[in-house]
Nucleic acid binder design. Structure first.
Length: 286
DNA sequence: CCTAGAACCTGCGAGC
DNA sequence: TGCTCGCAGGTTCTAG
């Protein structure tokens, strides 16, 4: 589940059901699911065997399982359609099951990576000194991270010659924000998605960040956003935040603030939803 | 160096 | 019924 709240729901599930177990074996059913593991599927499986899983961690949309005593982690990204499921051994294989991880204990469950579109994947990487898989060192801290550098983020926005929604989706500036929560936060902040970042004032940036945190925490409280069965927690259950969305997916429905119909605009091969009255376009854009 | 756009995949629903 | 088209929550690479 793509954005931060959904990934955090999965992380919490892994912490409860997978942490502190030891791997007895793994099985890669589709090589693309481990394409980021450059040494290949066999190497991935071999280096996983016998390892003890530590406490699952997350930064933005990435999550990882530290392997105790090896200095490495299993890095996971769910892409557009990935799921990490804790299933009983006897549960039938999912249609898009890509990787299976079995444990040495008698709990009767296994960890499965299921991914329809195969944009996501698992891989093994050494950790940097601060416990981060080395390949995600370029990913910025996310807005729920206590060490998120608000001032650096604001200075980056001022420096860039880009627009606000592009910047929010740039994981090297701020991580964890995707298409849904970008639209939701911008609606709350009454900022048009095509507004240049260079003109944002410091208070305006702070306000936007507050809205991002608020909407993410609200989603987290109800298990995240799921429109369909693709986005579920480790037990296969959906979140309920789709009922609370104010902008995303609400084309033609009245803005909950002013009643003006929400608009959808094609944007970067996807969509942007906004209120044309509350979120005024920068110049002559509609 | 920077930014915009396309590519990477599979499946579903709408419209014809 | 069956085909085509547009669309889907992300990241990364390339062209300009």
């Amino acid at each position: 589940m793509p954005e931060l709240p959904e990934v955090e729901v999965v992380r919490r599930g892994l912490e409860r059901w997978v942490a502190h177990r030891s791997v007895i074996d793994a099985e890669v059913l589709h090589p693309r699911a481990v394409r980021r593991h450059l040494a290949g599927p066999e190497d991935f499986v071999q280096r996983l065997r016998g390892r003890h899983i530590g406490t699952p961690r997350r930064r933005g949309k990435y999550l990882w399982l530290p392997l105790e005593e090896s200095g490495e982690s299993v890095l996971a990204h769910l892409g557009m359609s990935g799921q990490l499921l804790v299933q009983p051994h006897e549960a039938p294989d999912e249609k898009h099951l890509r990787v299976r991880i079995r444990f040495a204990d008698e709990l009767g469950t296994e960890l499965r990576f299921v991914d329809q579109r195969t944009f996501g994947g698992l891989s093994l990487h050494p950790n940097t000194p601060d416990g981060l898989p080395d390949v995600i060192a370029h990913i910025a801290r996310d807005p729920l991270d206590p060490l998120f550098d608000e001032d650096a983020f604001h200075r980056a926005l001022r420096r860039k010659r880009t627009t606000i929604k592009r910047a929010l989706l740039d994981q090297s500036l701020i991580s964890g924000v995707g298409n849904i929560y970008a639209d939701e936060a911008l609606w709350r902040a009454r900022i048009h998605y095509d507004r240049p970042t260079a003109g944002l004032t410091r208070p305006r940036t702070a306000e936007l960040l507050t809205h991002i945190r608020d909407v993410m925490n609200a989603a987290l409280a109800v298990g995240g956003t799921s429109f369909d069965s693709l986005y579920v927690n480790v037990n296969g259950e959906s979140g309920y935040f789709d009922r609370s969305l104010d902008a995303y997916g609400r084309e033609g429905l009245p803005c909950r603030r002013c009643g003006t119909p929400i608009r959808r605009r094609p944007w970067m091969n996807r969509s942007s939803y906004f209120c044309p009255r509350c979120q005024r376009p920068p110049r002559a854009a509609s």
